[in-house]
């Protein structure tokens, strides 16, 4: 959001609208020339993905972010207790390490997303979904990003370009509790061409 203003400037400076549309139509034409479709290689393990058919777009696969072990972890404390019963004096305070930095506390608290009775399930409207489909929880509020994600311009593929579409879930990239990407130092020192010069 904060970035849009300057980028618009770039567009007006560098973008030639007719060129853009030319390139689009050009690749449409090229498509019509393709006779044999590229074979789809099954190089990845589908067990690591869930099917995503609830879309206007072509169905695709979404990388799993959750597993049995994690779920059993939650159950070891949460089984048999509704959250409302757990809070208070009888139970020690838990999850002190999770600090929400996501929207306003008026909008967001733990049970905005987590189901009250089964904390390892996530709220979508009045129903709940498995953690591997938690993207649906996010999509309720972030529909623009959700659209882009379905389209392929937000998020990323989990596997190569050639296989059927298999992509990362929202929480593969965003920590649901503090979703903004942090600052960090680049992983690599800058290019020093002078270190590779024996000109004389």
């Amino acid at each position: 959001m904060k970035k849009i203003f300057p980028i618009l400037l770039i567009l007006t400076a560098a973008c030639h609208p007719h060129h853009g549309s030319n390139s689009k139509s050009k690749y449409k034409e090229l498509t019509n020339q393709v006779k044999n479709k590229v074979s789809v290689k099954e190089v990845f393990n589908k067990d690591n993905f869930v099917e995503w058919t609830e879309t206007k777009a072509q169905p695709f696969l979404v990388e799993k972010v959750w597993n049995e072990a994690k779920e059993n972890g939650c159950k070891s404390c949460h089984s048999g207790f509704a959250l409302s019963k757990m809070k208070g004096k009888k139970h020690k305070r838990a999850h002190w390490n999770i600090v929400l930095k996501h929207a306003d506390s008026k909008i967001m608290n733990c049970t905005t997303c987590h189901n009250d009775d089964e904390v390892w399930r996530f709220k979508v409207g009045k129903s709940k979904v498995h953690a591997n489909k938690s993207a649906k929880t996010c999509m309720q509020c972030h529909f623009k990003q959700a659209n882009d994600w379905e389209l392929g311009s937000h998020g990323k593929r989990s596997v190569g370009w050639q296989t059927e579409r298999a992509i990362k879930s929202c929480t593969s990239c965003h920590n649901p509790h503090r979703p903004v990407f942090g600052k960090r130092v680049p992983k690599l020192a800058p290019y020093r061409p002078e270190n590779n010069e024996e000109r004389l």
Partner: peptide, 15 residues
Amino acid sequence: TGARVFGNLLDPNSE
């Protein structure tokens, strides 16, 4: 960040 997208321009279903 997913800022980089690669694929086949001749495949109408590609990202």
